[in-house]
Design a protein around this nucleic acid. Structure first.
Length: 760
DNA sequence: ATCACCCGGGG
DNA sequence: GTGTACGGGTGAT
């Protein structure tokens, strides 16, 4: 039987692995009870036998074998270890905890503990999800390479599931009445019980492979699960009966902020995918599939995880295939560092302060995937850094840190990254060529880019499975060194370096400057990591720090010769800005985008200010819909942990008083109705509770509007106060609204995190 | 003035 | 099941 693995999970009741295969003739369920997961324990050779005898007595243990495995990535030779087979799947984790904490074993370590059962099964049979496979007489045979560049996914049939819920409080709650449901094109109505029964029937008839939802994990699924239980009507959303398990949601710290992750509602044999989940949102099925194939995490789970988790899974797979065990807990002390070394090592990426103001004819060069490329080029991995085999001085030195990396053996991180970089390069090239698979290539490229971006951070993460802080430092040291060397080459070619951050250079060609192609070629040849021309700016404005006036590092906007605009750090790029202010800033940029050089830019300034004025007038006339004034703020802690009465806190109070507590990591959306008020009911109005008769705080929004204007125009002499003065007066008689710049529309659509786990 | 709090990142 | 560190901006006290 040929098909694609679309789902897999352990059956804890029968100690077996279930695999769902998508075939031409429908989905097939395969249950394999032969698979026995195991984990490993290392100990001094003299103790192994007695440990084994003690372990064998335990009820939870089925078998203990003495065998040999490599314990560390850097080990040449395998060491003697015990391989432990729990009697039941569900015992594995508890058993590991028992042995680890109070087993009375000394000088021992545990390996291969926290791996998914499905991932263990895939590794054991050398198969992977969403790859074409043959299963006959209990034997798996892959029909394609895991790293094949060209492959196709099964034509999964997806059905969008949505429900209508009565919401007397503005936002639906679990106890509110179910009014209807919609599956694909099928509208379902009737009593609550009828709706559930008709939904069951519709799913049986339609038999989709994928159920798509918007916010399924956070509301739709828990709501349906509760309804089904309350009414005593079983609801089967997956391909086998299951209790829709409530896994509790939780908040966790990631990407520098707290994220709320709702409980997972995983279906069996059918994929529940929330369209708001990261991989699907960014790259749809093609990107999710690419990631799932490479990480061997089944798509339904991968959809809820970050590319960083996928990267860790890839490392585990690589290590396991290399015959190296994966240590349960990382326990690698940092090298001793003297104070001076610490200061040098902790300095982050390279930064050169830009000249504030508007500049003409500036060239921007960017390194593509700089950090992953550095890891590959300099062979940076936990086991290759300061390796013993190159300690005699033959290693690759790390600039300024006194470390070295191995020149004899390729490290785990480069081995995992190399194919990812190659794949990304391939898809990036092909996505530009028109054809039926163009969109697929684009999505694969996008998800690979994210995976590469997060791979760097993992090196410095203290809990990273294969991370090491010195690796992180070394990558930064190489990055600084490369950028400085690139700058020197640019200067040799007659370019003045205007601004530089981490992996980008802004250059001003002098009269005698050589061509850009020649410069790029020279840098590529000398550095060995591809640098690309991001574009040549007709004009670009480097913005000052509003408090100190010196050049800010990551705040600028400019117009490329091809008509595209690049914006960084301004209101349009921030997700908390209201649509009204976004539109105003976009309209100002639309106006400025008609300028082809600095002279025209300066001439157009009054028109940009006039645009701002018309927006102010609409606001003063009460013509701006309340929905356009909604601010969206991230919530970072529980309500009682806040000490300052900000508008966000007022909104949180309002939510709570109506029975909607908000968890850290969720977002809160509200309109400011009286910025000065200390009363949470008067100060703001939560977006979902808007009746329509509320009045926004016009002065507050005028201030926000003019501040967005100041952000753009401060280097050109327009402060917030000056703009406020202009905006409080009447606008000019004629309407100077210019034609829209199509590239700006593109930008504004993307300005905000698409995934906002708020309730409906 | 100081503290509290939120935002960004890639195309 | 999970990137950190940090500059930047702004509001409350």
């Amino acid at each position: 039987m040929q098909g694609w693995i679309i789902d897999s999970y352990p059956n804890y009741d029968s100690d077996s692995i279930v695999v769902w295969l998508w075939t031409e003739h429908g989905a097939r369920r395969i249950e394999d009870s032969r698979f026995r997961p195991s984990f490993f324990m290392s100990a001094p050779p003299s103790e192994l036998r007695s440990y084994r005898q003690r372990l064998e007595i335990l009820d939870e243990i089925g078998e203990v074998r003495e065998t040999r495995r490599r314990l560390n990535l850097g080990d040449e030779e395998p060491s003697p270890v015990l391989e432990i087979f729990p009697r039941h799947y569900r015992d594995l984790n508890d058993l590991a905890k028992t042995i680890d904490s109070n087993g009375g074993y000394y000088d021992h370590r545990l390996y291969n503990i926290d791996m998914r059962f499905s991932q263990r099964y895939f590794l054991h049979h050398d198969i992977f999800p969403l790859g074409l496979v043959d299963y006959s007489h209990g034997v798996w045979r892959m029909q394609e390479e895991q790293f094949a560049l060209e492959y196709r996914l099964p034509p999964l049939r997806a059905a969008l599931l949505d429900i209508a819920v009565d919401a007397p409080m503005g936002i639906p709650r679990l106890q509110d009445k179910l009014l209807g449901a919609r599956l694909c094109e099928i509208d379902i109505g009737g009593s609550e019980g009828e709706i559930l029964e008709k939904l069951n029937a519709a799913l049986r008839d339609l038999d989709p492979d994928v159920i798509l939802t918007d916010g399924g994990d956070s509301f739709l699924m828990p709501y349906l699960a509760k309804k089904s239980e309350a009414l005593g009507i079983g609801l089967q959303l997956g391909r086998e009966p299951q209790k829709l398990g409530e896994k509790k949601g939780r908040s966790y710290f990631t990407y520098g902020r707290i994220v709320y992750k709702p409980g997972q509602y995983l279906l069996k044999g059918r994929l529940h995918i929330d369209r708001g989940h990261f991989a699907y949102r960014e790259s749809e099925m093609a990107g999710l599939g690419e990631l799932s194939r490479l990480s061997t995490i089944v798509p339904q789970e991968q959809a809820r995880l970050t590319p960083g988790t996928a990267f860790t899974a890839m490392q585990i797979n690589r290590a396991t295939r290399d015959g190296v065990l994966v240590m349960w807990k990382k326990n690698l002390p940092e090298f001793f560092k003297d104070a001076e070394q610490l200061i040098r090592a902790d300095r982050g990426g390279f930064i050169l302060e830009p000249e504030v103001g508007v500049h003409e004819n500036i060239v921007e060069l960017d390194y593509a995937s700089l950090y992953p490329n550095i890891m590959v080029k300099f062979n940076l991995s936990m086991e290759t850094l300061n390796c013993g085999c190159c300690a005699d001085g033959g290693g690759q030195p790390v600039p300024g840190l006194g470390y070295h990396s191995c020149v004899k053996r390729l490290g785990l991180v480069p081995r995992v990254l190399r194919p990812l970089i190659d794949r990304k390069r391939y898809y990036k090239k092909l996505k530009k060529e028109p054809g039926p698979k163009q969109e697929i290539y684009r999505e694969r490229d996008t998800i690979l880019k994210w995976t590469l971006v997060t791979s760097f951070g993992f090196q410095g993460f203290r809990n990273a499975r294969f991370g090491r802080i010195e690796c992180h430092e070394s990558i930064n040291a190489h990055a600084r060194d490369l950028l400085v060397r690139s700058m020197e080459i640019a200067e040799q070619h007659g370019y003045e370096v205007v601004h530089g951050i981490v992996d980008s250079l802004w250059l001003r060609p002098k009269a005698n400057a050589s061509g850009i192609d020649k410069l790029v070629e020279h840098i590529n040849g000398a550095i060995g990591i591809p640098i690309d021309l991001e574009g040549v700016y007709k004009w670009v404005v480097f913005l000052p720090c509003k408090t100190t006036g010196v050049g800010a590092l990551n705040r600028y906007y400019g117009l490329f010769q091809n008509g595209e605009m690049k914006l960084r750090g301004i209101e349009l790029r921030k997700h908390d800005t209201s649509p009204f202010v976004n539109e105003a800033q976009k309209a100002m940029l639309d106006e400025l985008s008609h300028a082809n050089n600095v002279k025209e830019f300066v001439e157009r300034l009054p028109r940009a200010v006039a645009v701002l004025q018309t927006f102010a007038q609409r606001l003063k006339d009460g013509k701006v819909p309340l929905q356009d004034l909604v601010l969206t703020k991230a919530v970072t802690r529980q309500l009682d942990e806040y000490t300052v009465m900000t508008s966000s806190v007022a909104a949180l109070k309002q939510m709570k008083s109506r029975g909607y507590p908000i968890e850290p990591g969720e977002y809160i959306r509200f309109v400011i109705t009286d910025g000065q008020s200390k009363n949470s009911e008067k100060k703001v109005k939560v977006a979902d509770f808007i009746q329509g008769d509320e009045k926004p705080d016009v002065n507050e929004y005028l201030k926000l509007l003019c501040r967005a204007g100041e952000t753009l125009l401060l280097p050109l002499g327009y402060t917030e106060d000056r703009l406020l003065e202009i905006c409080r007066s009447d606008p000019p008689p004629s309407d100077p609204t210019p034609a829209e710049n199509p590239h700006l529309k593109e930008i504004s659509r993307r300005s905000g995190p698409g995934y906002m786990p708020t309730r409906h």
